[in-house]
Computed example of a mutant assay.
Amino acid sequence: MTTQQPADGFYLRNAASGLVVRAGHVLMVRGTWPDPNAETYWLPGGGQQPGETLAACAEREVHEETGVRVTAGQMLVLREHIAGNHPESNIPAESGHHRVEAVFWCEILHEPATLGGTNHDDPQTGVEWVPLDKVAGLPMIPPFLQRLLPGLAVQAAAGTAHAFYAGDVE
């Protein structure tokens, strides 16, 4: 689904991602965004559709991008990204981009024999289970999740995670 930018030059985009962990590995999408010349990793997720809850959005996006069917549980993180506040971002400030994203802990319902979804994002080049202890060394978007992800996954699996608002972070 494409978001149209209104005439006033500003748009707000809700999104959701799934944190899916199995045997000490996190399910991640690999691709060439935002730099077409460099490999980057991110949690499977994307834009919310009209009439869809954020939890349902996370479930749909995980399945579309990876082929794994999940059920979304606890919301772990709520984050915003306002392009105008991040001059280092690859999204120009004048784009009016403002994204609000929720990250949900997801339980696996069904995993296909071969990873791969049915509706990839254009820059997506693959899907893989990444060892949690390797996440810190990966180029990841959003960057703030890189340092938090391993601990967050352990806490969520143990049922001790507390949802938090991360604010407007890159």
Score class of each variant (00 low, 15 high):
82 I>M: 07
68 V>P: 06
67 G>P: 10
76 L>S: 06
71 T>Y: 11
149 L>Q: 04
3 T>K: 15
137 G>H: 14
56 A>E: 08
135 V>L: 13
139 P>V: 03
123 P>I: 04
121 D>P: 10
103 V>P: 03
133 D>S: 02
65 E>M: 12
161 A>F: 02
122 D>L: 15
135 V>R: 11
128 E>C: 02
72 A>E: 01
91 I>G: 09
49 Q>M: 12
35 D>Y: 11
39 E>W: 13
15 A>N: 11
23 A>Q: 10
85 N>Y: 07
85 N>T: 05
59 E>F: 03
167 G>D: 00
136 A>N: 13
13 R>A: 05
64 E>C: 06
13 R>K: 13
145 L>H: 06
113 A>I: 03
106 C>P: 00
22 R>L: 05
99 R>I: 06
17 S>D: 11
30 R>I: 07
92 P>H: 09
75 M>Q: 09
164 F>I: 03
125 T>L: 12
67 G>I: 02
43 L>E: 02
61 E>N: 10
111 E>Q: 11
151 G>S: 04
156 A>I: 04
136 A>S: 15
122 D>I: 14
68 V>G: 05
43 L>M: 06
93 A>E: 08
74 Q>W: 07
30 R>N: 04
26 V>L: 06
104 F>N: 02
159 G>S: 05
151 G>F: 07
154 V>M: 12
84 G>F: 01
2 T>W: 07
9 G>A: 02
20 V>T: 01
75 M>I: 03
131 P>D: 00
109 L>N: 07
6 P>Y: 03
8 D>W: 03
137 G>Q: 15
156 A>D: 00
31 G>Q: 01
170 E>M: 15
144 F>A: 03
93 A>G: 10
125 T>H: 12
57 C>Y: 12
165 Y>A: 11
2 T>H: 15
64 E>H: 10
25 H>E: 01
57 C>I: 12
41 Y>A: 01
22 R>H: 01
55 A>N: 08
167 G>R: 12
130 V>Q: 05
51 G>A: 11
143 P>F: 14
45 G>F: 14
110 H>R: 13
8 D>A: 01
28 M>K: 09
81 H>G: 03
151 G>K: 01
101 E>C: 09
121 D>T: 09
54 L>C: 01
97 H>W: 15
98 H>L: 04
170 E>H: 15
9 G>D: 07
136 A>L: 15
92 P>Q: 06
157 A>S: 08
146 Q>L: 14
78 L>N: 11
69 R>I: 09
91 I>R: 09
70 V>F: 02
57 C>K: 13
99 R>A: 11
33 W>N: 06
134 K>R: 15
149 L>C: 06
42 W>H: 02
92 P>L: 04
87 P>M: 00
94 E>Y: 11
131 P>E: 02
36 P>F: 12
38 A>K: 13
